[in-house]
Amino acid sequence: MVNAASRPDEPVEVRVADGDPRPKAVLEGPDIRRALTRIAHEILERTKGGHDVLLLGIQTRGVTLAERLAGALREVEGRPVPWGSLDVTMYRDDLRLRPARALGRTEVPPEGVDDRVVVLVDDVLFSGRTVRAALDALNDLGRPRAVQLAVLVDRGHRELPIRADYVGKNLPTSMRENVKVLLAENDGRDAVLLGPTGGAK
């Protein structure tokens, strides 16, 4: 009843059924790699060398992306960038719409968030509600100097005044469509899929 590996606003997998149009891959592995490298460069540019940067990935796939971003930053800068994970379940505004679910890990590097430039990392930016929950969660962890947002895909349809500082790909979608990010560490392969909603539950 509780699936720790999935974010509630996304289906666990995109099922291909008879008559359903097959979800199509809008990004493949190399595209994702390129997008992350570009974001890494943008972060360094925007934060003037990234000295105070701390990456916090939002559970679940945001954590994988944060780890990859940290790797990309290290490659470019030649020194490690602290990264961690943030579980926002307890801060969500849609908790009461579903049964209580398992919590993911929140792991902040020993440096802490105080006075750092925290870059929140997530896979898909949609309504903005997850990011709002992340901001609340972050608020309880300390007081960053600044908070920025990096997402692999921005699919639009914001319901809150939130925008991303770094975007891998802007993907215009309709509300009837479903965006699914697959990452090798979580799903066995890298891809961003666009398909009809309702096919997966």
Partner: peptide, 11 residues
């Protein structure tokens, strides 16, 4: 308390 009361129904 979270698992009983946090969601739409107890987990």
């Amino acid at each position: 308390l979270y698992l009983l009361l946090g969601g739409s129904e107890p987990a």
